[in-house]
């Protein structure tokens, strides 16, 4: 009995080793057959060291002004229209006191107080959401855009707790039934992942400006913050601008001309 057991073990270990070797060899031939991937940027791609947005809030008065941008974004990115507290929003509007919580003033100019303001992801230079994400599903691109990979998000919502701007939304339910007219050029999201504005990185990469910028010519400006000659830098030089919660040190990339 003892002897046969030893023999059995010998045979078993040999066959396991053989199987392993075969698998390894198979894996190698497979790897050799694979095409070496090569990727490049689109020749038309718009490039910058640090993308930034300047919103001329004086230009937005009517509901239509805002809706043009919001609808353009919603359609471009298949954003569902979910009613209630689990809504999804990438760009939206709100009152002064909710937008600029740190610069509230009881005796504000009526005109500024009554105006509404866009809110969207600030694409911070020091994004807390990127810092806290445990899977690098949220990450900062070299051009300053804070992007997301929805394939990797585990839905822990740490980034939502980390974002001081409330720029992120979570898919509490299946978003598909809430999208009226699906844009076949962009994916939707699924239940259980976080999402937010991506500064239209997919459009920049093919040479187009962000959807909201395109929908509001001359009202929302987009450019390279690191280039002193850029339009956004000139606008910042010439106008008084605000950013949301600058004291937190996240260095937002969205500026508001007041």
């Amino acid at each position: 009995m003892k002897r046969s057991r030893r023999q059995f073990l010998k045979v078993a270990s040999l066959s396991v080793a053989g199987l392993g070797a075969q698998l390894a060899a198979g894996g190698m031939t497979k790897a050799a057959a694979a095409v070496k991937p090569s990727y490049k940027e689109d020749a038309l791609a718009l490039k910058a060291k640090r993308w930034a947005m300047v919103i001329d809030t004086r230009e937005f008065a009517s509901k239509e002004d805002f809706d043009a941008c919001i609808n353009a974004c919603n359609h471009a990115h298949n954003i569902p229209n979910i009613p209630g507290k689990s809504e999804i929003k990438w760009i939206w509007k709100d009152a002064y006191e909710h937008t600029f919580t740190e610069t509230k003033n009881k005796y504000q100019s009526k005109e500024i107080e009554d105006r509404e303001y866009f809110m969207l992801c600030n694409h911070c230079e020091n994004p807390p959401c990127v810092r806290v994400c445990p899977t690098q599903a949220t990450y900062k691109l070299e051009n300053g855009i804070v992007a997301m990979d929805y394939h990797r998000c585990i839905g822990c919502r740490f980034c939502m707790a980390g974002c001081p701007f409330g720029a992120r939304s979570f898919n509490f339910t299946d978003p598909r039934p809430y999208i009226k007219d699906i844009n076949p050029k962009f994916p939707t999201r699924m239940i259980g992942v976080v999402e937010k504005c991506n500064f239209c990185v997919e459009r920049l990469d093919e040479g187009k400006l962000p959807a909201c910028v395109e929908a509001a010519p001359g009202k929302i400006h987009f450019g390279d913050l690191s280039d002193p000659e850029s339009e956004v830098r000139k606008l910042l030089e010439e106008n008084y601008t605000l950013r949301r919660k600058p004291a937190l040190g996240t260095e937002p990339g969205v500026f508001y001309i007041i």
Partner: peptide
Amino acid sequence: SALRDGKRVYVASNGATWEASLQ
């Protein structure tokens, strides 16, 4: 490549180029 490197053009083994997009 598309999401993290911003490289959205795939150069196939025969040299043809394609947009790296499922849809």
